[in-house]
Design a protein around this nucleic acid. Structure first.
Lengths: 202, 202
DNA sequence: GGCGATGTTAACCAGTTGGGGAATTAACGT
DNA sequence: ACGTTAATTCCCCAACTGGTTAACATCGCC
């Protein structure tokens, strides 16, 4: 089209027609969509390939099959999760931040939930959640002394993920989509409030 | 083996060999197991039939196929759910009661969660959650005035279902199975505590 | 312009899936 | 005994699934 070659080793991605990297990325994107929507068993390789706009064969070529693609997705997710820094925030703000993250990446969350539901006994290499921070906060008094960090962590994760896990409840009760800004602001405020009440001494 | 026949018109159920009702029930039981463990797409009719100890063909004969069986399960679940009375309990006790129910019937909960995750847009006939009780409790002061019932309901359901949704977190953090009595008592106590803090004025 | 390497495609394949036709067998009233 | 009905089994099948084989196209390089 435009911009003649002129000895380039890294041509602009938009110009290429054959681009392994692009195919890979599009496959991963499409796979996330489909796996998140239908789960591993429900997902169809053909469907993924179609959405990615590439040939089905490439799934095997690049990822070694359906399962390989799935694993690749998980790896990427774990990588991103590890990057997720926990800045120095109060518990309420931290919770709201988690909520935001969840609502911003529903597909990834779904993937995790779906994987956890399957529970074929695996999921062994998962790094243990770090609660030292929570224990510290409890000593500070930021978390009430009678609340145990393990339970709090589980409860908080449950509250934060509820909009995805129970999306139909959100639609029913709030009359909006879980991903809508209205919902995030309303439920976020409430989560701040709730977690705050868990710190202040009665 | 034992107990020769001897002219009986209504034989004890255990003696019968052909019993439509029993086959139906066993199919439903097996289906709950399998669907809860693998999800709809992951479940195999052959697997269900094997666990039920009946011929695969009976699934079609009695329920009209895999989907029919799935629907039948849902119906039964909705029926049981409707029966679940909400006695006159405080919010903390009510929450603990919900937790108990969830932990006692993990398969049913899984089924619901899995169904919700699929989210093919259906699930229309679901009866709307009733919040009038929560609103009343807020007026009484049993629920803090600044907490909105919708959010509270969602958060509570999230906390209560978390042990199923995030079972790996339970194993990781608590070192026990979500279904174990130790876990129920510990997490139950904490949920009572948490929900209680949401009522008392600060 | 040719050439090897690599991305891409089409056609095909073997295994599995849910389902159905029709025979077989047990239950039960007569 | 016997015939009717209903429960159960056997065997087959068409559709679909993920994966593969082998041809084809495009690229970078000489």
């Amino acid at each position: 089209m435009e911009a003649p070659t002129g000895s380039r080793r890294t041509p602009a991605p938009e110009e290429r027609q054959r681009d392994a990297e692009r195919s890979r990325r599009q496959l991963l994107t499409a796979a996330l969509e489909v796996f998140a929507a239908k789960g591993y068993a429900g997902a169809r390789v053909q469907d993924i390939a179609d959405r990615a706009g590439v040939n089905k064969r490439l799934i095997n070529y690049y990822f070694g099959g359906k399962e390989g693609l799935y694993r690749a997705l998980q790896s990427e997710w774990q990588r991103r999760e590890a990057e997720f820094a926990t800045p120095d925030l109060s518990i309420p703000e931290l919770t709201a931040r988690y909520l935001h993250e969840v609502l911003a990446n529903p597909a990834s969350i779904r993937l995790v939930l779906w994987h956890g539901l399957a529970a074929d006994g695996e999921t062994p290499p998962e790094p243990p959640e770090d609660l030292s921070d929570l224990y510290r906060r409890r000593e500070t008094g930021e978390l009430a002394a009678d609340i145990d960090p393990e339970s709090f962590m589980l409860a908080m994760m449950g509250m934060v993920m509820a909009p995805i896990t129970l999306q139909h409840v959100v639609r029913q009760l709030f009359g909006v989509e879980p991903g809508s800004p209205e919902f995030e602001s309303r439920y976020g405020d409430q989560l701040r409030l709730i977690t705050q009440k868990l710190s202040e001494p009665r």
